[in-house]
Design a protein around this nucleic acid. Structure first.
Lengths: 107, 107
DNA sequence: TCAATATACCTCATCTGTCAAGGTATATTT
DNA sequence: AAATATACCTTGACAGATGAGGTATATTGA
């Protein structure tokens, strides 16, 4: 069990939504941003990222569109929806509660 | 995804070790303690609990012995080992780091 | 020039912790 | 006598994470 796996499990979706609240973005960029924000301590694995995108899209929390890059590799952008914003509020609330509980249990 | 599953996933072992640091205990009691400490918001499911016991014992973090109850159902007690205490320190450190990281990512 | 690296997407099979559902046995309460 | 509480346990299924693999374009350094 490493810090990049089970301890963070279940937060992937919230982390992605949080990024999309700031601005639309695409997979590769989101991954880089997360690494940067955590000083390379947390790298979302690609497979994890894309499976989370699928779930979020399925749930209606994000929508997707192709970027219009004339050069370079194509980019699939993701945008958070209204429902996604609502879901994020819930995710964050759950995180606050979970944090309190675990802190209480790990005395 | 509920607050009793993935968000807490990966913390089960640390939570158990934390309890055993206070005193030796047995499955049923540990479960009750956790519910009490969290105002019934977090119930460790029995199957989860026992599979965690197996992992912890396998890792040498806990040892087990039968209680000497003359009445009532038998109790299998668990005690934390020296290795378990060391492991707990690591678990807790990881939790502190993970907490910081997630807080940073869920702005 | 061409091999390596970076950018950018994706899928599939496997692993692991959680948990629903099931089981056993004893003691107490209604 | 039935229900509830105490106390243990196993099995199979599920879901999120991930290793390993794939595709394609652009840039950089030797």
């Amino acid at each position: 069990m490493s810090i990049t796996s089970d301890i963070l499990r279940g937060h992937t979706e919230a982390i992605i939504l949080s990024h999309l609240l700031e601005q639309d973005s695409y997979g590769y960029q989101i991954n880089k941003d997360i690494m940067k924000k955590t000083d390379n301590r947390y790298e979302l694995k690609e497979a994890t990222l894309y499976s989370a995108f699928r779930r979020l899209e399925q749930a209606g929390y994000i929508r997707t569109y192709w970027g219009d890059e004339s050069v370079g590799a194509r980019r699939r952008y993701y945008a958070i929806t209204g429902e996604g914003k609502d879901a994020y509020v819930v995710y964050k609330q759950e995180w606050q509660e979970a944090k309190e509980m675990i802190d209480k249990l790990l005395k």
